[in-house]
């Protein structure tokens, strides 16, 4: 996708790890991105996330990268919003007495049901050492999620647009949504529009990430109600995490939504 050595869309957060799916498959988490040495007001920014677009010098091509990125994030959002109803439907099925063993489901649901069935089977054997081990992993997953949620609300978003070799604009968005932008003075309208799009892409991604974490939290509560044993209940979190990410990577669903959009556009 990128004509140069750096990814087109780079992301940096000093104190948290993000998977590609956390960044909607658009941004590439890169420890080499920052931190930058100065900010708009001339002082060193701390506690920030950097969202940087390294765009090719051709403005039309640059716009097409940004349009594709925004479309991808919007698609992720649509897929994400399908999670609660899918999970409710599964809970209804399981609540109506359908066994854990039935496998004519979509892949994410089939995997979740299998995970639940295995957890229940383990609980019968009551192994506290296994439960402790899971609990440790659950804690890591949970604090990682909360950390990312906190960072979304807490940290400065530092959004930069590079066109070819030039840094053309930079915006600092503080956690309450105040904006401070610096533009280079020689931009035409199409070039200036690039930074507006970069800004939209970065903030949309941040927003969808926060939404994803909240949906995982809600799914955790729902899944925990499907687990009968207090030993296995903590497994609801990794199950929810895995389930949500499996849905977001569901190629059939992605193709379905894209096809629907294509038909609507005709």
């Amino acid at each position: 996708m990128n004509p140069g050595s750096s990814p087109v869309f780079q992301f940096f957060d000093a104190d948290s790890t993000y998977s590609p799916s956390d960044l909607m498959g658009v941004w590439e988490s890169d420890e080499q991105v920052g931190p930058v040495s100065f900010d708009i007001s001339g002082s060193q920014p701390v506690n920030m996330q950097i969202w940087r677009a390294n765009l090719p010098p051709d403005v039309n091509q640059a716009h097409s990268y940004l349009k594709a990125g925004i479309k991808q994030v919007e698609l992720s959002r649509q897929i994400l919003e399908s999670v609660p109803s899918r999970l409710d439907q599964l809970r209804e099925e399981l609540g109506s007495g359908t066994s854990f063993g039935i496998s004519d489901r979509f892949q994410p649901e089939a995997e979740l049901v299998e995970f639940l069935a295995n957890s229940e089977a383990r609980a019968i054997g009551v192994s506290f050492s296994i439960a402790d081990q899971f609990d440790f992993k659950v804690g890591e997953t949970f604090t990682g999620l909360l950390h990312r949620l906190r960072n979304s609300f807490n940290k400065y978003a530092w959004v930069e647009t590079r066109l070819g070799e030039r840094l053309i604009a930079r915006t600092a968005v503080d956690w309450s949504g105040d904006f401070h932008t610096a533009w280079t003075g020689d931009l035409d309208q199409a070039e200036a529009g690039l930074h507006s799009r970069t800004l939209r892409l970065a903030l949309k991604t941040r927003d969808v990430l926060a939404r994803m974490i909240l949906i995982i939290a809600r799914a955790t509560v729902k899944i925990s109600l499907l687990l009968s044993s207090p030993i296995t209940a903590p497994l609801a979190l990794p199950a929810a995490y895995k389930y949500v990410h499996a849905i977001m990577a569901d190629q059939e669903l992605i193709a379905f939504i894209r096809n629907k959009e294509h038909l609507n556009a005709k």
Binding site: S176, D178, F179, H180, T181, A182, W183, T184, D186
Partner: peptide, 11 residues
Amino acid sequence: TLTVQTDYLNT
């Protein structure tokens, strides 16, 4: 309050 500031830069 919501504050939006735009700066320019001589290139």
